[in-house]
Design a binder for these strands. Structure first.
Lengths: 225, 225
DNA sequence: GCCCATATTCGACTTTTGGCGAAACTACCG
DNA sequence: CGGTAGTTTCGCCAAAAGTCGAATATGGGC
């Protein structure tokens, strides 16, 4: 049946003003659209968990509760069917490239004009991908890092959860409790993670994960004062 | 003989031109001075290991073989008697403060003029400390990080070596082999490290160390109000 | 429906890790 | 010289981590 085109979007950004502007831009693009807003990563997860079908998430990686790419990785692992557009103030080509490697459907610099933004979103809603036309995606082609990201992309949803908990320094016992499974299960997941990442201990796994996260976000504007 | 004031300095920087300029500046300051240059961190260690007495090290933290503060930490742990001046292109007050917390005797921005540089060096050779006069050392006073650095400062030389090997993801067995001691000894060091850093596992120890290294000056965790 | 691939789960077993106590060595001080 | 404090060293034992094999969902495709 021909389903009225009722799109469901989620706009995730910690700046309310920007969320509003983004909502405005999208409203003009689509007639029937249900837009939810989230100011923290947990809110995004809650929306996806509860609300059911979502057609697109506009995600700012510099949000409370996310450090770097882990939010994107988590999202792609837990909800593989939901396209994610990364919206960021950072327009470093290497960062853009990395987002795409993590499975984003697009990357929208916050500096982008409304028109280009609409073009990008409609393209992605149609099933395609979109990145800023004027960046060289070959930049930052770090073989080692790229390969590691590719390996991380093969992790199952549960394994991604476990890897993040490893990166917090939790014991298998603690992870097991939080996930509501047995310790043996966690160990099995850890073993699978180690094999997929090509490392030999949990310590090496968190080091590898940290390398990906690290240092690709500009020195934050020392705006305090 | 009457103790000719024969100072021995080490200039450690990966830019030969800058090393030359620095050598020039110091030559004008001291009459009898033996200046050694190093382009990598390993060369610095070799000089200190072989040459014996060294009165001062001028260390650039952005050198091959060093990632962030670990070079300074290693140096202060292995050769506590040798004063270290950090020479860096970065003049972020928080970074300066962190260097001083790690036990540096001074911090010289590369932008500094020759005269001020000479003042700083002579002051430090006299046993004092020196930091740029116009920076607010109270900035970047991150309690958590500062406390962690203070804890790291209590590590013994051998413990520092072990901690760095932990951060490379090595097993106790591998560390033991490289240090030429038994595995039991390494475990004892690891236990001491965990206690001093206030963490509960080697994984948490490397996470803590990485937080300090990452240079990621305090990533603001949106505790706005 | 059945079948196949994958994800998730778990128990038994081996290896690694970490805590505890103690000996040897060093350095410094009265 | 003796004594005190700190570092380095090590063995023993309990806990945690990791491997292996296997049972149980889960989710398409034929």
């Amino acid at each position: 049946m021909n389903e009225v085109l009722q799109y469901r979007l989620v706009i995730a950004d910690d700046h309310p003003l920007f969320r509003g502007a983004m909502r405005e831009a999208v409203s003009g693009l689509l007639e029937r659209v249900d837009i939810a807003e989230a100011g923290t990563f947990d809110e995004v997860v809650e929306l996806l968990e509860r609300g059911g079908e979502v057609d697109l998430v506009l995600l700012d990686l510099a949000m409370p509760g996310v450090r770097g790419f882990s939010g994107l990785m988590y999202m792609r692992a837990q909800y593989p069917g939901v396209p994610v557009i990364v919206v960021s103030a950072n327009d470093d080509p290497a960062a853009i490239r990395r987002c795409m490697e993590f499975g984003a459907s697009g990357f929208i610099p916050k500096t982008l004009g409304v028109d280009a933004m609409r073009t990008a979103i409609s393209r992605i809603l149609g099933g395609g991908v979109w990145t800023p036309p004027d960046v060289d995606l070959a930049v930052g082609l770090d073989t080692e890092a790229a390969e590691l990201i590719a390996r991380m992309a093969t992790l199952t949803p549960q394994q991604v959860r476990v890897l993040m908990m490893l990166s917090e320094g939790l014991l298998n016992k603690q992870i097991a409790y939080q996930l509501g499974v047995s310790e043996a299960t966690v160990k099995a997941h850890v073993s699978a993670i180690l094999q997929k990442l090509g490392v030999e201990s949990r310590t090496q796994a968190v080091i590898a994960a940290a390398k990906i996260e690290a240092g690709h976000w500009p020195q934050n504007v020392a705006a305090e004062g």
